[in-house]
């Protein structure tokens, strides 16, 4: 635990971006998430940790209503983004997801060129009026994702031809190309080797300056390394939520402590 870079971190801002109140999720009759209250801060990396099946990914997918695509899922409670309830009947999930981007566990580049992968989001959301603007977005996004130097000479080659780590950074670049305000990451490094993981983690740290980042991870070390705030989920409950340093060094709940010290999970 000593090697974790916890002490160096301070929380930059306290402005709340997303607030969840009394969120319940059911898959059919299975009550998967119970009474979750969370405030996610802007320009912060928030980590969700917990044993598998604890509901952390489920909650993440509530934040941009990806659970809508699962027929049996039902969400109750309120989640607000900048004060607007995202589960309001008037909200179009399409518009929501433009604001709340998502990166998935397994790199999932479209079977298109690298350029088209990045340009996909801006195109469907009508973010550009000209080819040169689009070129600009592609370049900026790739640069922000620290991928530009590796792929700038082969933007026309298929995105599926990249290495696993590159593919995941491509997916991150794709997500930031739509200029979201929040970036959700569902175990983004679980399919990557240690070197690629380090690159992605470094990237996440840089993204913090522009977005609010929420990351689900099964690795406590990763949570400790990249996040400022951490939420611990267990059996569908949010057990403890607070500053990362506090969670890892001085957990208040005994369940958190057991998990951190490796007794459950």
């Amino acid at each position: 635990m000593n090697d974790m870079r916890i002490a160096e971190r301070n929380v930059d801002t306290n402005e709340s971006k997303i607030s969840a109140r009394k969120v319940q999720v059911y898959y059919g009759t299975n009550h998967a998430l119970k009474d979750v209250d969370v405030d996610i801060l802007d320009k912060t990396v928030t980590a969700f940790i917990g044993p598998s099946g604890c509901g952390k990914s489920t909650f993440l997918r509530c934040l941009n209503r990806m659970n809508d695509t699962v027929a049996s899922a039902r969400v109750e409670g309120t989640i607000t983004l900048d004060g607007e309830n995202i589960y309001d009947a008037k909200v179009d999930p399409v518009q929501l997801r433009a604001k709340v981007g998502m990166v998935f566990q397994k790199p999932n580049p479209f079977p298109k060129s690298i350029y088209d992968n990045i340009a996909y989001g801006p195109k469907i959301h009508g973010l550009t009026r000209s080819k040169s603007e689009l070129d600009g977005i592609v370049e900026t996004s790739l640069k922000k994702a620290a991928l530009w130097n590796e792929v700038k000479d082969r933007l026309d080659s298929p995105g599926t031809g990249l290495s696993g780590g590159q593919q995941q950074r491509l997916c991150i670049a794709r997500a930031i190309a739509t200029q979201p305000e929040v970036l959700l990451m569902d175990e983004p490094c679980s399919a990557l080797d240690p070197i690629a993981t380090a690159q992605v983690e470094e990237l996440i740290d840089e993204l913090r300056s522009q977005f609010s980042v929420v990351i689900v991870t099964h690795s406590m070390q990763q949570a400790a390394r990249v996040s400022q705030r951490t939420a611990f989920f267990h059996l569908g409950n949010l057990v403890e939520y607070g500053e990362t340093g506090q969670i890892f060094t001085n957990p208040k709940d005994p369940r958190t402590e057991s998990y951190i010290t490796g007794r459950i999970g």
Partner: peptide, 27 residues
């Protein structure tokens, strides 16, 4: 066509028909 591709597209804010026409069908 893997579900992950659909998720990727929907996660970017594409509508289902955009996902089908621009991602699923080409794939």
């Amino acid at each position: 066509v893997p579900q992950s591709l659909r998720d990727g597209s929907l996660g970017l804010g594409a509508t289902p028909s955009e996902t089908i026409r621009k991602v699923v069908l080409p794939a």
